[in-house]
Each structure stands twice: as structure tokens, then as C-alpha cells.
Design a protein around this nucleic acid. Sequence first.
RNA 1: GCGCCAAUAGCUCAGCUGGAUAGAGCAUCGGAUUUCUAAUCCGAGGGUCAGGGGUUCGAGUCCCUUUUGGCGUGCCA
Length: 554
Amino acid sequence: MLRDKIRADIEQVMKTLGFIFNDRYTVEEPKNPEHGDFSTNIAMVTCKLNKMRPIDLAEKIAAAFSRKRDYKSVEIAGAGFINFTMSNYVFHQLMPVLMYSDYGTSTYGEKKKVILEFVSANPTGPLNVVSARASAYGDTLFRVMQYIGFEPFREYYVNDAGNQVDILAESVELRYRELHGEKIREFPAEAYNGEYIKDIAAHLNAIDGSKLLHYSEKDRLERMKNFALDEIHNMQVSSLDNFGVDFENWMSEQKLRQEGSIEEVLSYLSEANVTYEKDDAIWFESTKFGDEKDRVLMRADGTITYIVPDIAYHLTKYQRGFDIIIDVLGPDHHGYVPRLMAALEALNYDKDKLEIVFLQHINLLSNGEMVKMSKRTGRIVTMQELIDDVGKDAARYFFLDRKPNSHLNFDFSLAKKASAENPVYYIQYAHARICSVMVKAKKAKMSLDNFDLKSLKKLDKKEEIKLIKKMLSFTDVLILIADKREPHRLASYTLELAGMFHKYYNAHKIINPRYEDISRCRIFLISCIKNILGISLELMGISAPTSMKKKSKK
RNA sequence: GCGCCAAUAGCUCAGCUGGAUAGAGCAUCGGAUUUCUAAUCCGAGGGUCAGGGGUUCGAGUCCCUUUUGGCGUGCCA
């Protein structure tokens, strides 16, 4: 927010002085507070353009700034940095916006339509912790984008057709027949073997009883497939709901197929002249577009491979008019990107609109030992278990607070124990603490009614200015998150703000009956902090409690 | 073999389009409550940013290379 002002001032000075510049320079907040509030490298970046030594150029620019009231001091340091220290009133003047309940919103996104596809786990079992990571990531990115003026749309693609779901049906069938006294000697290795399959079979049996035994195999499996898909879908929806995640749309592959999209894709590709027949199969010449080998579209037996509906699905994203298409995928899918891109290119779609974000795997540990997860064997830790044990808030924070592209180790048993030490409590505590102080303030008859904004100048402590600065940078953080698709930055930002508050709280008394003016200014300040913590938590899908229940110490 | 991703403190991880003395939490050790919630705060120790080159005023960040690990390289999805 302030950064824009500094940039504008810098460019105005450069123009007045007749110096050449481009937008390659930066304005940033130096780590070292001795270097002022903001710092720019413009003299170093443009010295060659202006044929001057960086120091000399910096001198001239700084001199022009010294006449501006908003700047307390402008100094040159290092190889040619220009360090700005703002007058305190600049911060104070901006403070009222920090109180707005929609502080940070903007029109930055220009109503661009964004489709965010995430989770999209196979409908063959309960969601696992990997989906929890995807949920936390996708949903928070969605909320932030929406907050700053994009028009995002959450979508879950359901692979409810094809091989995997046939195996699902067969797995249910085995358990069903078991219920009817049949002994299954050896459960096939490729079948789904989790307890939930038994539950589904039992549920189905409770409804249909033994009548399915008299169906033809085809009809029976069809019934089992649809029943299981339904049950699992409900399980997934409920876990996601418990995690605070909703989708605008669930796109069914079955439906896509029924609508004839498969035939469409096949004919488009053949019209584009990029298919051929070999070994009785139909191939897509994806190598023409950078893929490492050609891909089969239709097998000799007339069934299609998964990539056809996948292409069809992606075409709908274009046809529905999205400006930005974001796929959030697991790392085991990166091999498939080139063939998808190849298809888009072959069909003349703008592949630059499609962005793929890869979330790296989670190494799940239990008591320090690696847990191998597999849906088939049923050895998985489900998202629901995670929510039950760690709590929605902590779980969301935990999975959000790391950049998408790094692997992460998650010790499940540790997380259960350590939940009280989770940073999310630190943040929530800051929020609750402020609420509590405000209740106290009310009792002390110190309200913000008739508050004179001019008195804010009494907030002149170093920590106070730092806090205001931090809050003013919130708008920049949100933009950065949306642009770089990195919602983990919100977790870090919120943690930092909470930390700054806790330090401030310990260093300075907020309510002091002897200094009512200052007290009221401080109440104003912490109200702003509370506001922004609340907004951040809401964007992360984490609750903002007004009080914390004390847990007994161990 | 080829391709993608990663490697930062004992552990888990940050590090904004390249910026000045690389940070936080946990763990370890030592302190703080006549005071608005101690789920807090203050302090200490702890680093060859995997190794080596390069680009430039300046590299944890960009490029090349080596090493290590994960994943991919199906007519599974």
C-alpha cells in the first residue's frame, strides 16, 4: 500500500531530474531496521543508463527527496541504496483503513475468471492426507483470489468411469458375496481392500439383501458400482465439509462421456490430422508437440484411454470461458502434462492459460517410521482421521504453512501430541487476547466512540510503528499470494503479525487509567490487529476465537 | 538412460520480481507473572544455504555441472 506511494514519488523525482529509468528497480522493506522503512536500488539499476556512478546518482535523488515532508530522512548506504524513513504521521494517516472489515479487498483481479481444480481424488476410497494438503492449498488460494477481485471457481473432477471404478465394483462384489457365506480364498492383489469396502457391501446388503445374487453379472456390477460411487462421494463431501471446503462444481467423467465429449475429442484430433492407426489402435501424434512418445487414444478393443476424457474435460474449461486455468496435481502426475499440453496445442487452444501446480508428496510418519499408503491395501490415514485427531484449524494451518513445491514430513503421532504447540494456537491466542483486552477496556469505560484520529500521533513507539507498517503491507501480501499461487505466505504473514502483537503486549500496557489518551490509541491499534488477524484466519478457513480455553499443563 | 521436483540450524520449515549482518518454531540451557489470559515474553548456544564453476556492483535466490533423495518415463488414472 505504502510501497505504491514510494514508487510514485521516486518516479516523479526521476522525471523532474531528467534521469532515465525503467521498472526493473525494487522498493522493499529492509530486514535491518537501521536501513529505514523502505529502500530502493534504483540508483544501482539505472546508473549505466544515466552514465553516472551509482553513489552520485543516489545523492541527486536523495537531495530531491529531502524537500518532501512525508520523508523524515533519506539516506544513502552501501553501494548505492537509498533508504527512506517515513515521517510517523504518514503511518498514522493511513491507519483508519486498517479498521475496515473488508480491509485488503481490491479490484486487482479485474474480475478475471479463474478455475481452480484441486483434490480430484479417485472415487475409490476415502480422502487421505494428500487431499488434505490439496484442500488447504486450493481453498485458501480460492479465498484470497476472490478477496482481491478475481472470480475464482472451485472444481472437483471425479474419475467415475473407467478401469479403477470397475475394480471398485468387483471389490464390493467380493465382500458382498462374503456376506452371503461365500469364502473368498484369496483377495486379488489389485482389488481395494480397505475396511470401507466391507462397510459399503454391508450397507448395500442391508438395502438390497440377496436379490442382487439373481441379477446378471453386468447388472449386479453396475448396481454395485453406482452404489459404491455414491457412498464414497458422500464420504468425501462430508470430510471436505468438515475441513471447511466446498466446491462450486463436481465434474463427473461419466457425464462427460454420456454427453459425447469422447467422440468430439476423437474427431477434433482426427480433423487436425494428428492421429493414425497402428496395431488396430488409434494413436495421437503427441510427439509433434513436444511429448516424448505418441499416445494411444483408443485401444484395439474399442475402449478409450484416460487421456481422452481428460482432454475433453480440459476443453470444457476453455469453452466455459475461464481466463486462468489452474490444475493442482500430485507429483505423480507430472509425466502426463506434456501429452495434455500437446493435445491443447494440436487443437489450437491457448496452452499458456493452463497452469499446473504440483504439490509434493507427504511422507507420513508414525512414531518416526515411514507409513506406506495405498488405497488398495486400505492402509491409509484418512483426511477425516486427521481432522478428528488434530482439529480442522490446526490441520488446515499445518498443510497450508509450506510452499507447494516442497516435500513434507508429517509425523502423525507427533501431530496429535503436539497439537497444543501448533502455531495456529499462537495466532488464535493473539486474536483472543485482543478480544479480552477490549472487554476489559469496555469495563474501564474506554471506548473508541468519538475517537479523534489526530490523537493517533501518540503512537510513536518503535513497536507501534512496526505494527502499523506490517498491517499496511497486508495488501501486498494478498497480491503476491494470488500472483504466485502461494497461499502459504498468508500463514507466515499471520504468524508474524501475531508474534509482533504478543511482543508488543508484553512490552507495553495497553489500558492504563492514568493515560487515557494513549490507552485509547492503543486500543485503536490492537483493534486493527484483531481485524486483520480475523480476516487472515477467515481466508485460511480457520476460526478466530474470542477466547481460548486454558489447557492444563503437563 | 532420459525427464520433472527438491537439498537452508539437531528436527520441521520460511526467506517477497537477485539486495546490505541467512530467519522462525520445536528441541536444549538460563530468566520474566503485586500488571490487560504464561497457549505469552526476554536471553544464550547452534549454519561451508549439498559440493564446484559461471553471470554482476551484489547470488540461498539466476545459469552450467557433480552428488544425494523423491517422482515420472503404462494401450492404470
